[in-house]
C-alpha cells in the first residue's frame, strides 16, 4: 500500500529516474567497498612485511647473542684450562723434575715428566684453539692454518690451504671470528660425515667481500633429501649465521664426488 501511494505521488518518469539513480548508487557503493578492501589488503601486506622483518631481526639478534654467549663460554673454559689446569700440570712437571731417585725410578719419573710436558703442550693448543678472539688476532688465515696444523697431526688427510687475503680489517674482527667458527663447523662436518681423503680450503679477499671456499672429495649427498629429512647437518645453522652477517651461503654436493661450500660476507 505504501509503495502504491508512493507511486501515485510521483510521476512514472520521475520514478524511473529515481530507480536509475538508486541503481547508479548501488553500483558506486560496491566500487568503493572494493577499493576499500584493496587498500586494507595493501595495509595488511605492509603490516605482514613489517612483522616478518621484525621476526627476522629478532631471530638474528637471538643468534648474535647465542654466538656471543658461546664465545664467552669458550673463552672462559680456555682461560680456566690455561690458568688452572695448565698451572697444576706445570707444577706437577716441576715437582717431577725435582725428584731425585735411583736409576730404575728415574726412568719412570722422566716418562711421567715427558707425558706431563706433552699434556701441557696439548692443553695450551686446545686452549688457544678455543679462544677464537686470541687466535684471530693475527689474521683469519693464521687461525685456519693453526686449526689445520692440529688436524694434520692426528689424521691422514691431504689438505691444501690457500690464503689469498691481503689485509685484516680490525673493525671486522667479529666477522672474522664468526667466519672462523663457520670454518670449524664445516670442517667438523667433513670429518664426521664426508669420509673424504682430500680437503681444499681457500680464503679470498676482494674489495667488498671476504670469501671462504671449502671443497672435499667425500661421499657427498643430495641436499634436498637431507633438508627434507630434517638432517641438515647443521646447514641451516651455517646459513643463519651467514645471513646474520648479510652474507651468501652456497652449497653444491654430488653423491660420490664430494661437496663444495662457499661462504661470502661483506668486508669493506
Amino acid at each position: 500500500m505504501l509503495v502504491l501511494r508512493f507511486y501515485m505521488q510521483i510521476s512514472s518518469k520521475e520514478l524511473i529516474l529515481l530507480i536509475a539513480i538508486i541503481t547508479f548508487i548501488f553500483l558506486i557503493a560496491p566500487l568503493f567497498l572494493i577499493i576499500y578492501i584493496f587498500l586494507y589488503n595493501k595495509k595488511k601486506a605492509k603490516h605482514l612485511e613489517e612483522k616478518e622483518v621484525l621476526k627476522k631481526t629478532f631471530e638474528l639478534e637471538l643468534l648474535k647473542s647465542q654466538v656471543e654467549v658461546q664465545e664467552h663460554i669458550l673463552q672462559t673454559i680456555a682461560g680456566d684450562l690455561h690458568d688452572n689446569i695448565g698451572q697444576l700440570l706445570s707444577l706437577t712437571s716441576m715437582t717431577l723434575s725435582s725428584i731425585k731417585a735411583d736409576h730404575l725410578r728415574e726412568e719412570k719419573i722422566n716418562t711421567a715428566a715427558e707425558l706431563t710436558h706433552r699434556a701441557i703442550k696439548e692443553l695450551r693448543q686446545l686452549s688457544k684453539k678455543m679462544n677464537g678472539q686470541e687466535l684471530i688476532k693475527k689474521s683469519l688465515g693464521h687461525a685456519i692454518a693453526y686449526e689445520l696444523d692440529w688436524l694434520k697431526k692426528g689424521l691422514a688427510y691431504e689438505i691444501q690451504f690457500t690464503d689469498n687475503t691481503t689485509h685484516s680489517i680490525s673493525a671486522h674482527a667479529d666477522k672474522e671470528l664468526i667466519m672462523f667458527r663457520l670454518f670449524q663447523e664445516i670442517l667438523s662436518n667433513i670429518l664426521k660425515h664426508a669420509q673424504a681423503t682430500r680437503i681444499k680450503i681457500t680464503i679470498d679477499q676482494t674489495k667488498d667481500y671476504l670469501s671462504l671456499f671449502v671443497q672435499d672429495n667425500g661421499k657427498g649427498f643430495i641436499l634436498a633429501d637431507k633438508l627434507e629429512a630434517g638432517d641438515g647437518l647443521g646447514l641451516g645453522n651455517l646459513q643463519k649465521r651467514t645471513s646474520m652477517m648479510d652474507g651468501n651461503f652456497t652449497i653444491n654436493s654430488t653423491p660420490g664426488k664430494g661437496t663444495d661450500i662457499q661462504v661470502s660476507i661483506p668486508y669493506q
Binding site: 530507480i19 538508486i22 541503481t23 548501488f26 553500483l27 557503493a29 560496491p30 566500487l31
Partner: peptide, 8 residues
Amino acid sequence: FFYFGSTA
C-alpha cells in the same frame, strides 16, 4: 556488482 546493482 550484479546483484547489488539489480536490487532496485
